[in-house]
Design a protein around this nucleic acid. Sequence first.
RNA 1: GCCCCUGUAGCUCAACGGAUAGAGCAGACCCGUCCUAAGGGUAAGAUGGAGGUUCAAUUCCCUCCAGGGGCACCA
Length: 558
Amino acid sequence: MIREKITDAIKRASGLEKVNLECPENEAFGDYSSNVALQGKNPKKDAERIIEKLKKDGKLSGIIERVEIAGSGFINFWLKKDVLIDGLKQIDMAKSDFGKSDEGKGKTVIIDYSSPNIAKPFGIGHLRSTIIGQALYNLYKSLGYEVVGDNHLGDWGTQFGKLICMIETEKPEELSIENLEKLYVEFHKKAEDNPELEEKARECFKKLEAGDPETKAIWQKCVDISLKEFAKVYDLLGVKTDFAFGESYYESEMRSMVGDSGIRRHLITGEEGAMVIDLSQYGIKTPLMFLKKDGATTYATRDLATIKFRTRKWDPDIIIYEVGVEQNLHFRQVFAAARLLKLVKPEVLLVHTAHGLYLAPEGQKFSTRKGNTVKLEDVLNEAEARAEKLALKSGEAKNKDEIDKLRKSVGIGAVKYFDLMHATGSNVVFDWDKMMNLEGNSGPYLQYTAARANSVIAKAKGKDQKFEAINNPNEEELSILRSLIKFPEIIKDSADRYAPNLLCNYLYSLAQKFNGFYGKHKIIDSENEEFRLALAFGVMQVLKNGLKILGIETPERM
RNA sequence: GCCCCUGUAGCUCAACGGAUAGAGCAGACCCGUCCUAAGGGUAAGAUGGAGGUUCAAUUCCCUCCAGGGGCACCA
């Protein structure tokens, strides 16, 4: 890779082991820029000295056109035009594989994502985990990692005690997902005045965990209904996880852990009789509750059992939990306990991405318990309806079948992109119009740009694309070339930082450049027609590959 | 009270300790015999307050203010 070649050359020239190389946002500062000279006392002198050596470096002369000192001592690099053009050739050769690498070869990453709770509708809150998780999955896959996607369904715990309680007393005529949600909300309403209900719910869960057949039958019914409902949503979203073991799967693993003397010796009796693990040596004041006072397991027990299971089954290098920020403490506890109990090798990376939440328009958290949620299905349906309206207006689609496809790929694309474009850490205020945005910085804008490029290529039928250097590339053309060759680096960066939004930023900026170029210059029947067609092809291919990683389809025309 | 996260333009969001803080939406103006106007262009608009570290701070540290989330028997 170009980046490595330059980094290595700087290392040789400066004698430093770690050097920083960035891609300046402003193209006036070159393709790459390094601040190594700024670390010392005489930045300008150091920079000059390093530049002298760089100029003599044979390994660099083939790719660098010029190296200059700038500002207070930055060293800026400009790539040769041949190198830029070569990027275009690579895209043409690799096509849908452009951007991929094998740098994760031999390593395994497990991504725990989506993980909706059984017996509740698939709410807007689960969108982030599902979409970001899938994007991370695709990013790591592109880097050659062995990737395991596991949907850690919330199908166990006292929440079922609550539900079973309600089902037994209310005896609803039909167990639909809507009814189950109603019962859950009702439970919490009732429990406000009757705190003893909480105790009763825990007893019910205890019964479930003890294997009571009647209780288990009701539980199974809830699971079945929910899975059917989720399948509908996953189908709409085009998301498919490799596994969906769910929390209940770890029942036996938990039992063996509870009986494990190595683990038992870390358990202490907490304030009210629960068995807890003290984590103060990890700077966590709240101990992890391993067993409740009645001996039933908790969410944390299940997550620890899951780590043990996953380690045995896949021996991962990284485990990523794509779960919301509200579970920050929980994962800090689980990770610390996993280290303490030596459930993972010390070098294994445990990551909680901690994405921000969708907040209700009033700025508060959506709450299932209070029945204050937005159903994801409604959002997707509305987005599709809006996309269809535009598709009909544009008139590009040839028949009803194509309109239907557009309706889906553009509507869903808008929602997914909206979700992914935000830095994962921050909360997002839910807003129907913004979520379904089809213009500006949006998924459909990227899809549209690709379709536009596609259309030009189609219109130029029969004409060659020329992937060779031309004498006089203009500013816009150079700028697009510069972006195109950065794509593989962006994939790596997005994965390393668990940040699909970086890929979104990149694709958006590429699309902007292309649209700017498109507005200003003719492609067909221009002087550089063949080169420009190749450029349009390159943009289309990179947009397509990038969108695919984001889980968004690229329609041929729209 | 303690612990996490976030305060950037009217609104919603970007920015790897770097160079002139990027966008979109909304509002103003312009571009249709021209390869897809789901587009392009012009102008206007921002780092919560006070300290500190650094050649350089939206970014790191301290403190104050504001918002969100969490703090043992939900997950």
